[in-house]
Structure formats: C-alpha cells, structure tokens
C-alpha cells in the first residue's frame, strides 16, 4: 500500500493516502479520486466531520437482517417486524437495492429474502456463496405459502430461479415470478423476440 501511496509525488502523505483509498471505490479512477480528495481538502472542517461520521455510523450501525438479509440498522429489520405484512409470501430478490426499488412501488405487502447475488458458475459463484441455505431454512420453518421470484431475467438470474424452484419442489409452496413484457415507453421495433413472446403470453383483457 505504501508504495502506491508514495507514487503521488509532491502530495502530502495524508492526502495521498486519501486519494489512494478513494480510488478503490467503484467507478472512481485516480483522477476522480484526486478531484474528490482536493474538494475535501478545501471543504469546511464541519462538512468533512459529518462525512467521516456518516461513514463511521454506517459501518457501525448498518448490518444485515438475520431473517431476510436486507440491510438494516435494527434486527430483525422493520419490514420483517411489520405486523401488517403478509409473512406467508416471500419475495426473493438479488440485492438489497431491489427491495428498496420494490418498496418504492408500494404495491407488495409480503416479506423479502435477499440472496446477495445470483448463481454465476463462470465466475465461480455457487449456491454456497448466496443466502440460499438461509432461504431454505425459512421455507422449512413453515408458514410460507408463496415464493415470488423477483430475480433479473438474465441467464444467470433464470438459472438461479430454476435452482431455487428445484429446491422448493418437495414443499407444497406456490412458486411465481414477476411478469415479463414490454416496459413503459418501449418501442416494438427494437424489442427482442424473448420479451415479445413473454408480452404475448402475459397479455391481459383490455
């Protein structure tokens, strides 16, 4: 680490260290890291303190819900604790961000299970790297009538959904998946055959 930090010649060591750390963030290259670091250098002490505090609090207070594995500051999370939500329906998603997006819609009133990824054999990501075991335990504990697969319809996502469906086969549980078809604002001319086929399959009475 030291050798990388020292490559910022003429830059004071603490600033070089900050640039080095910032450049580890996704989508932040060395130039952007340098710009961000210089911005923080010029910023007021108050605002940098708030940033440091926010990062610290986030690391200390945000963890994973022991039931659904969504990000939370209390365990179980608010969604799992909510007595109004239907605990017999479980919506399986890839990432915590998916829960946030689905909650923004406000239509779904069941509970979630976050896998934290999808099966990706080529990258060496197998079921043991996801929260599959924990999902199965929730199912085995009973009280689940329906599992909704809200996994992205990529090849890996489809494989994950099929894998989970297989694990659910011994249980008397209804397995459903989110409808697929044309998004709002879509153009038929540029729509692929798979989406069009799904759109026809899932057509509704007008």
């Amino acid at each position: 680490m030291i050798s990388t930090v020292n490559t910022f010649s003429g830059i004071p060591e603490p600033l070089a260290r900050l640039i080095h750390e910032l450049s580890k963030l996704p989508g932040v290259g060395p130039k952007s890291a340098q710009r961000l670091a210089f911005h923080l250098l010029r910023a007021s002490e108050e605002s940098t303190k708030l940033l440091v505090l926010a990062i610290n609090d986030m690391k200390l207070q945000v963890g994973l819900c022991s039931l659904c594995f969504h990000i939370t500051e209390i365990d179980p999370c608010r969604l799992c604790q909510d007595g109004e939500r239907d605990k017999s329906i479980l919506c399986v998603v890839e990432q915590p961000l998916d829960v946030i997006v689905l909650e923004r819609v406000g239509q779904y009133k069941g509970t979630y299970h976050v896998l934290h990824g999808v099966l990706n054999p080529i990258e060496g990501i197998g079921p043991e790297d996801l929260r599959v075991k924990e999902f199965l335990k929730r199912v085995q504990d009973g009280n689940v009538d329906e599992v909704i697969m809200a996994i992205n319809p990529s090849l890996e996502g489809e494989a994950t959904a099929m894998y989970i469906q297989r694990l659910l086969a011994p249980y008397d549980i209804r397995t459903t998946r989110l409808a697929r078809g044309l998004p709002s604002g879509a153009d038929l001319e540029y729509t692929d055959a798979i989406t069009l086929a799904h759109a026809f399959e899932g057509r509704k009475t007008f």
């Binding site: 054999p121 080529i122 090849l155 494989a159 099929m162 297989r166 692929d192 055959a193 798979i194 086929a197």
Partner: peptide, 24 residues
C-alpha cells in the same frame, strides 16, 4: 439484433449449466 435466443436452453437448468460450462 437477435438471431437465436436459445429459449429451449435457458429454460432448462441442466442445459443452461452445460452451455455456461462450454462458454467458460
């Protein structure tokens, strides 16, 4: 523009896994 989306493969776990293995 899609020529073939291999629906018969992507809707079958064994076939998808075999295709991914050969791709790797």
């Amino acid at each position: 523009e899609t020529i073939d989306s291999y629906q018969e493969i992507r809707t079958d776990l064994e076939k998808s896994a075999a295709a991914l293995y050969c791709f790797e």
